[in-house]
Nucleic acid binder design. Structure first.
Length: 268
DNA sequence: ATGGTAGGTACCCTA
């Protein structure tokens, strides 16, 4: 089973690119963040035409929005409200598995970006981000079990490791790589003993990015990337993790998203 | 140190 996650930055604008990516990688499940559309305008029919007839979508006007698209039906679907807001940042669905007797639960997350100023007292958006990650850590610890087959993925908007950013030193004060965010993401990581599926394959001393800012004339030449998008698995899934891929080529071409698709293959 | 680009929406917000 191939599971792909991508911050698409507007699903309606990016449909031609989504079609290309679906054909190229043929994932069984596609998780999207920043769909930026209310559910009534989500292009469900076009996506069903690509083979994804089952959808769990949760969107709003202009901002945020998450979706899980699948070839096979879901056992259950959930929508989670976070930090008391109607924000469309967390949905979950259970997928059927032959390997595991119970369904595998997949959480699609869009963590707040957090604005520019890395101080929760001065910047409400950063405060929201920290509270969001705190709440996720607590929620997983209190509501889910480390020995259950779970997947948490999406745009976490945090690059935790030194080689998840182009310059560790230069980004220590930049929202996405500040020590406080990294510490909080670490607590969420510890909540269920999560495993980083991409770093399972890519050594920690190797640079690894999933996002390049639009504010660079040549993203490839400057290569000032960050690894903001993640796929985490609980330990029972790790023996079944077979491969990963980051499609950096998706950053090229006309009207790309600033994030690129990240995927894993798991025997389920 | 600054400003650079993109998307959605409504004349500015978020990223």
């Amino acid at each position: 089973m191939r599971i792909l996650t991508w911050n698409i930055n507007s699903v309606r604008l990016r449909m031609p690119l989504l079609k290309k990516i679906a054909r190229k990688h043929a994932p069984d499940i596609i998780c999207l963040q920043e769909t930026k559309t209310p559910d009534e305008f989500f292009p469900l029919k076009e996506i069903a035409g690509l083979g994804y007839e089952h959808a769990h979508i949760h969107g709003m006007k202009s901002y945020n929005g998450v979706a899980i698209l699948s070839r096979a039906p879901f056992a259950t679907k959930e929508i989670h409200r976070r930090v008391g807001k109607e924000d469309c940042r967390h949905i979950a669905a259970q997928i059927q598995s032959k390997k595991f007797k119970k369904p595998v639960e997949l959480h699609c997350l869009y963590v707040p970006a957090g604005g520019d100023v890395p101080d929760p007292k001065q910047n409400d958006k950063f405060d929201h981000k920290l509270k969001f990650v705190d709440e996720m850590a607590r929620w997983f610890r209190e509501n889910r079990a480390a020995d259950a087959p779970l997947i948490a993925l999406g745009d976490f908007n945090i690059a935790p490791l030194e080689n998840d950013v182009w310059s560790h030193k230069q980004l220590l004060d930049v929202v996405s790589h500040t020590p406080i965010e990294v510490e909080k993401l670490g607590k969420m990581y510890g909540s269920l003993g999560w495993q980083d599926a991409v770093r399972h394959f890519v050594p920690e001393n190797e640079k690894c990015y999933t996002w390049w800012s639009y504010r660079n004339r040549d993203w490839k030449k400057s290569n000032r990337g960050r690894r903001l998008d993640h796929i985490w698995l609980t330990k029972p899934l790790m023996p079944h993790l077979k491969a990963h891929k980051i499609d950096a080529g998706a950053r090229d071409g006309k009207q790309p998203s600033d994030h690129v698709p990240v995927m894993v293959d798991i025997d389920l």
